[in-house]
Design a protein around this nucleic acid. Structure first.
Lengths: 252, 252
DNA sequence: GGGTCAAATTCGACATTGTCGACTCTAGTT
DNA sequence: AACTAGAGTCGACAATGTCGAATTTGACCC
């Protein structure tokens, strides 16, 4: 791991959390001398990864990130293939749908199709969810032993009374997920919200993304029809990506 | 400029252009030994900034960029303030509107409100435009001497027969832009497309963004009404950000 | 309006750190 | 099954980034 890149990435991470920070604040957070941080920040700034407030001496994330991320989204075959089926799935079920991938030890939402009832809903693309407290996350954990190890090696954060914080319970849930190829979550991250998720396979037979349907808590549990439609959609996307029944069974 | 950060940023830039590259391809492009590039790429990968193809040995941009960029968009006061007025402006004029900021020597579109006629239109947020061949870019150039110097120090790329490639002509156009606080462009980047743009001021009195209306070439020139509506919208946004008549006049 | 303070920024010497070449390993090809 | 091309590993060297001291900037208060 190259030290200065590690530090630079940490600076981006800090700015992600705190929005706007001065050199000395960054230096304090990283436990480095301000002059060192200054050099790192200026290098990031030269590439547009960080931007300085026009009136002031604080720094924030830069515009280059937007351009990079828009290319990132374009390169994802899963996403472009999934979009039309997600829209279909939202329409059929009446619920919002999400497509997620693994980012470090969390889940990143790479596409979101709103509930079709026309209510005001925040776009969720780019948000992330805890791996152990979301249906999306549980599916990723179930099919990725490395991630499972990562997540279980740290204490599990508690978000609501329903959050699973006992590693043994989580481990047994992951067994269920593998058995049914379906992840479940009821008010474990957000009160009033539940979800179910199914894996999406790539041509190598690996789970490369997860598809979920977000269900209001008072309409839980999901009907058999909803589950079947979710599974069908996830499977259709996988097939378009070149996965076969066979490859998905030997996968992992 | 820290060397390894510079190199890392260049790697991200290459992946932005080429989508998927192997270590040796990156090494060739950067004229560095493959082992050096490998170390850089692995460091970026550890932070999710690049990702390795599941089946294969090539690398692409990583999911962390999406999360970072979504935070970037949230931190931009201009954008959140501008969105509602842009929607209004699109509705009133019947044309698509764009909001841009400066990224290195180009213009990055940070918000796009579609033409309200309901035709299929690609979302343009995250795209970038050449500074010298767009109305947005000309406004940024006119109010940013450093950027002007940057852009004029290199040859001006030609996109269409209308593209201004003569520095002297561009310079005189920038004078006009400053005089009218309005940038114009007719088929200089894309055939069939023209646009007009007006500056948006921040509380320091600087031009921090640009607002434009995209007009089909066959409806050119824009009516006085359209121009006034664009100016009004840009001004309303500026005022919400704390700009005053006075500060915008002493600005720069 | 001037004086004080905190924070950003610049600079150069030192030693830590990243770089590079040689080597190994893996996978795909003929 | 041998061959090739590319990815990935390792350790020595010196180029590079780091850090402390000094300088500048700008904000706030008296």
């Amino acid at each position: 791991m190259i030290q200065s890149i590690d530090r630079a990435a940490k600076i981006l991470g800090l700015l992600q959390g705190a929005r706007r920070l001065g050199i000395s604040e960054l230096a304090a957070a990283l436990e480095l001398p301000p002059s060192t941080v200054h050099g790192l920040v200026k290098s990031l700034q030269a590439h547009g990864l960080v931007a300085q407030e026009s009136s002031g001496n604080r720094y924030a994330l830069g515009p280059a990130l937007l351009k990079l991320s828009s290319v990132y989204l374009d390169t994802l075959d899963v996403r472009s293939r999934a979009m039309r089926w997600m829209h279909e799935l939202s329409r059929k079920t009446g619920y919002a749908t999400r497509l997620g991938v693994n980012l470090l030890d969390e889940v990143l939402i790479i596409h979101h199709d709103r509930r079709p009832d026309g209510t005001e809903q925040m776009p969720e693309t780019g948000l992330n969810l805890p791996a152990h407290a979301s249906a999306l996350g549980k599916v990723l954990l179930a099919y990725n032993p490395e991630l499972e190890h990562d997540v279980l090696s740290k204490p599990l954060a508690e978000f609501t009374a329903e959050t699973v914080t006992d590693p043994a319970v989580l481990r047994s849930q992951l067994g269920e997920v593998r058995k049914n190829a379906l992840g479940l979550e009821y008010e474990e991250a957000v009160i009033g919200e539940a979800s179910i998720a199914a894996p999406v396979y790539g041509d190598s037979g690996n789970v490369i993304a997860v598809l979920s349907v977000v269900i209001p808590a008072d309409e839980w549990p999901a009907s058999e029809t909803i589950v079947r439609e979710l599974r069908d959609a996830a499977w259709t996307i996988s097939r378009e990506l070149g996965a076969t029944v066979w490859s998905s069974q030997v996968g992992r």
